[in-house]
Nucleic acid binder design. Structure first.
Lengths: 121, 121
DNA sequence: ATTTTTCTACTAAAAGATTAGGATTTGGTT
DNA sequence: AACCAAATCCTAATCTTTTAGTAGAAAAAT
């Protein structure tokens, strides 16, 4: 697995949501900051296919793309990468930083506690 | 704040540890995968200075560099970035994924519980 | 059947990341 | 003051990322 660049990430987020989609579907979901050209997004999808995040099948003249790496798989990898590179491999240290810096609601806290309770067994 | 590239990150990790150091100190800490040239690392340190992660003072003929962005500041920013880009802004969802995927020891779990206990008040 | 539209494939160029060589400066030493 | 060694500065080549144009093929419309 290889890290996604900023733009690749943005494209993958859309495809993970749409599941089966063509280039145009993705372009339509992108904000018009300026809206990138059709061919630009097409290039990204070709690259993502080379990197084996996507595959495609034909439907008439269209290519229908779909993810072959799932989002949970990538987020897991990505969090591990961050843990190793920024927190010296310590999960505890990442959790500490994140929990202290994030405004968790009381109900979030209760949910986390029951998750931890579950893991004790 | 701007994200650090892979190599920039590696260099910053060393500087955050050493606090005050010259180019050579950093080069010496890098593994010899192949060891990068002195001038390569110097270039990175110049870029990191432009990006305002570092500053330097003179000592004899050497430049002594030191961080002006601290590691906790960057890790915080970086986790927030990941939360927003991969977990739709949901801290709960990031924590859930991370906690479930990480082998936490029993003592880690207890520590986290008391941290959460602390945040309830 | 010919024209028009719509999509992909190929190409390439601008911007950013990574690498390092050679010229130049400079602090210290004789 | 002149020299030397060590460090910096400047520059540039290569690689990756991001962007998009043009050509060509396939389908749709006339």
């Amino acid at each position: 697995m290889k890290a996604l660049s900023e733009r690749e990430q943005e494209v993958m987020n859309i495809i993970w949501e749409l599941r089966n989609c063509c280039v145009e579907d993705v372009v339509n979901r992108l904000p018009d900051d300026p809206k990138p050209a059709y061919t630009t997004i097409q290039t990204f999808m070709r690259i993502l296919e080379q990197k084996e995040f996507l595959a495609h099948k034909r439907d008439g003249k269209k290519h229908i793309f779909y993810p072959i790496v799932e989002k949970p798989e990538y987020t897991r990898w990505s969090l591990k990468h961050m843990k190793d590179n920024l927190f010296g491999g310590s999960a505890k240290s990442l959790l500490n930083t994140f929990i202290r810096d994030t405004e968790l609601s009381q109900s979030d806290i209760l949910e986390l506690e029951s998750l931890l309770e579950e893991l004790k067994r």
